[in-house]
Simulated assay, not measured.
Amino acid sequence: MTEQDPSADSDYVPRTLATRFTDSDRDRALERYIGTVLRQQRVERDLTIADVAGLAGLSRGMVSKIENGQVATSLDSLARLTEALGITFSQLFRDYDSPEGGAQLVKAGDGLEVVRRGTRKGHTYHLLAYNRGHQRNFEPFLISMDDESEAFPTFQHEGMQFIHMLTGEIEYRHGKHVYTLEAGDSFTFDARVPHGPERLVTVPLRFLAITVFDDGD
């Protein structure tokens, strides 16, 4: 069996490191989680460490260590702290072991610029989300155009496509029909039918184009 290529997956962990994840590592993760939740609950209630320590009958040093995940917390101490904060054990552990979800944030202006076949200068695609798995579910692009004289290729690919106009006006062809899209308009179509910009009416022009793929695409 060949070793996995680390460059193929940003979440890749070498086998030698993965085997070192022990019970003590999980214990520390749990301690950090408990400390984080207790601190958040305390701050939300505008309480100081001294306030919570007094209500729970614990030392300020102990409360501080618990919040920072530096000590293993006994059930008695946890019961005292949750009572002092007015929360239950179920609320404390509600989000523990919840899936991470794979959320992805692309800040304004940080989208990956992609050169599409047949496009020219003045016509840019910014990819707003990057596929991390083996299956491509959707592709969202922010497309900018500012050259009225540009000639556009015809596109044809799998999936359904959704366009939402942000600025400008464009005549957009889908099959045998041409549609006029203005700022605020939304347009959804089968991307397997030949499509693409027919004429830029008002520039600069920006729109979101999201392609959603079927499971088999």
Rank of each mutant, 00 (worst) to 15 (best):
A53Y: 03
R26S: 12
L142T: 07
P153I: 09
E139S: 15
P99H: 04
P194W: 10
R28D: 12
L105Y: 14
P194T: 08
D27C: 04
A191K: 08
P6I: 00
E182K: 14
A209L: 15
T88G: 10
E148A: 12
H123V: 12
G175W: 08
S24N: 10
R28N: 10
T48S: 15
A29P: 01
F138M: 15
T154F: 10
I66T: 03
H195A: 07
Q40D: 13
A79N: 08
I66L: 05
F189L: 11
G159V: 14
P99S: 08
M160G: 15
D27A: 14
E148G: 04
T202G: 01
A209N: 15
L105K: 09
V178Q: 10
L38P: 03
Y33S: 12
D27T: 10
Y12S: 00
H157M: 15
A151R: 11
L38K: 08
L75D: 01
G111S: 09
R15M: 00
F141T: 02
S64V: 03
E44H: 10
V193S: 13
S74E: 01
E182G: 10
R206V: 11
D217E: 09
F162T: 07
M62H: 08
A84C: 03
V115C: 06
S77P: 00
I66Q: 03
R39D: 09
S24P: 00
Q70H: 04
L30T: 14
T2K: 02
R117K: 11
L17F: 05
Y33G: 12
